[in-house]
Nucleic acid binder design. Structure first.
Length: 486
RNA sequence: GGCGGCGUAGCCAAGUGGAAAGGCAAGGGACUGCAAAUCCCUGAUUCACCGGUUCGAAUCCGGUCGCCGCCUCCA
């Protein structure tokens, strides 16, 4: 597959460096608050990426996502609400994992915390000082960017041009204003760890260098994150990794575009943002995932309620088809039976659309084109259902299998397992069936008032009934749907 | 000042040299006791604008206008 590599500014063929195993490092959250809708984009995009390469290439991605649990923002927050940094970090770390579950993403293979890797970070900084790539001043340690001729390559910057008009804070302690902090001396009351330079805490960029090497080893295949991290964060990671180890850091750098909030820049101070958790609660993970994956990952994405509602309707269309065909309980076609001409042509069209899906995904992970192919399949299947001869309907189960296969990496359909947790031991299904039988009798006797009342009242309980030639079908309507109908 | 992105039907959005995907919304029709779902029909002679290259451009080149992000913590 081809991926756009920020490092080279072009599409490049991607293969794992180690057989069928690849390393994928995605910059994780600083746990000083709940995640907002922008934080969640890389999580959803690279979760889909991970699932896709597993399912369609057989590549196992070792997925590492760090948790930054000590930094300035956390300290500010802790002081503000009168808790310890540890308490704040613990609370929002829990909220982060809860969100991952609600979003239905595969959990990372490793979720290393900064505070659990202090020693390794100190070792790295020591090494940089020994090699002349860093210098200590008054308990701080700074990285000397002038030691790296390649500095600025990732972000395409020339250092001398940076200074004019930039808002880089001048610090008399730094040799070069762009030198960045590796170790920060602690002020009284701040969390701190011992080091050769005194009590303090590590700078942010260092943790990703330490953790990626520790958990991925030689498999430095893909490093991903939001495009706002290209400079300085990722630039600084590369600088210190290469200064310390004299070898290339990651091969591929992938960056997702930023979110805007209803046409405006996202800004907490202006209230132009939404918490991811609230959005998932209102719309559900399928709709949220569809919304994010409906836009190419490198382009900016504008969050809007209209967009979410459109995504919701689109997800419903797919889910409805799957639920309807499942409800019909069609016997799958046997291997031996020859297909009629119509059914054979139908199967061919489905295969062509599967190919379209794969080609889109292979081309810089174009989930938008892939979703288009899925929707085209839904249209094909609906059309076929409306017109096919009875015998040809036996091809429908395999068509649904295809929809499930293609929807699965995107996470836009419920998985194979039943969604309901209360299903076990509940008599609800039988009770609904009973009501439906009664209603059928009423309809036969043309007592439509009563039949409609049953339908309306079940609807009020979140159970939707629809009458089809094969009999009445029912299903639970997601709570998210009801709360958003206006 | 530097780096980068965007402008495709009412809305969202793929496509980036060879007949304008897809979704949402809207209108008409079919089916239905009524619904719901579904199907059929209706949409861009055109891809911000102006030039150029080409047999051929939404796609390449030059310019203009408009919008946005990053360069400071930021996914």
């Amino acid at each position: 597959m081809r991926l756009y590599n920020t490092l080279t500014r072009q599409l490049e063929a991607f293969e794992p460096s180690d057989g069928n195993t690849l390393g994928l490092y995605v910059c994780g959250p600083t746990v000083y608050d709940r995640l907002h809708i922008g934080n969640v984009r890389p999580i959803l995009v690279f979760d889909a990426f991970r699932r896709y390469v597993q399912a369609f290439h057989g590549w196992k991605a070792i997925y590492v996502q760090n948790i930054t649990d000590v930094d300035d923002k956390l300290i500010d927050r802790a002081n503000q609400i009168g808790e310890s940094v540890g308490e704040v970090a613990a609370r929002f770390t829990e909220a982060y994992f809860d969100l991952l579950r609600r979003l239905d993403v595969l959990l990372p293979d490793h979720s290393p915390k900064a505070t659990e890797h202090i020693d390794e970070m100190v070792d790295l900084i020591k090494r940089l000082v020994e090699r002349g790539a860093a210098y200590a001043v008054d308990g701080d340690v700074y990285f000397r960017i002038d030691s790296q001729p390649e500095y600025g390559r990732l972000s395409g910057r020339q250092l001398d041009e940076q200074e004019a008009g930039s808002r880089v804070e001048m610090s008399s302690l730094k040799e070069n204003p762009l030198d960045f902090t590796l170790w920060k001396a602690a002020k009284p009351g701040e969390p701190s760890w011992p080091s050769p330079w005194g009590e303090g805490r590590p700078g942010w960029h260092t943790e990703c260098v330490v953790m990626s090497r520790k958990y991925l080893g030689r498999r430095l295949d893909i490093h991903a994150g939001g495009s706002d991290l290209i400079f300085p964060h990722h630039e600084n990671e590369i600088a210190q990794a290469q200064a310390a180890f004299d070898e290339p850091f990651f091969r591929f750098w992938l960056h997702n575009g930023m979110l805007s909030f209803q046409g405006e820049k996202m800004s907490k101070s202006l209230g132009n943002f939404a918490y991811a958790q609230d959005v998932v609660e209102r719309y559900g993970s399928r709709t949220v995932r569809y919304f994010y994956l409906s836009r190419h990952y490198r382009k900016p994405l504008d969050y809007s309620e209209d967009g979410l509602r459109a995504a919701q309707a689109a997800v419903e269309r797919i889910a409805t088809l799957v639920a309807d065909v499942d409800g019909e309980r069609i016997e799958p076609a046997g291997e031996q039976q020859p297909l009629g001409a119509n059914a054979a042509a139908f199967v061919d069209r489905l295969q062509a659309l599967r190919e379209k899906y794969v080609l889109a995904m292979e081309d810089d992970f174009n989930t938008v084109g892939a979703i288009g192919a899925v929707q085209e399949i839904v249209g094909e299947v609906n059309r076929f259902r409306a017109t096919a001869r009875e015998a040809d309907r036996a091809t429908l189960p395999q068509a649904i299998e295809l929809v499930l296969e293609l929807a699965s990496p995107l996470g836009i359909l419920a998985g194979g397992e039943p969604e309901t947790s209360d299903a076990s031991g509940s008599t609800e299904p039988q009770l609904v069936e009973l009501l439906i039988e009664l209603r059928d009798t009423l309809r036969e006797r043309k007592l439509f008032d009563l039949a409609d009342e049953i339908r309306d009242r079940l609807d009020g309980l979140g159970i939707a009934i629809k009458d089809t030639p094969q009999g009445a079908l029912w299903r639970r309507v997601a709570a998210e749907r009801q709360s958003n109908e206006s």
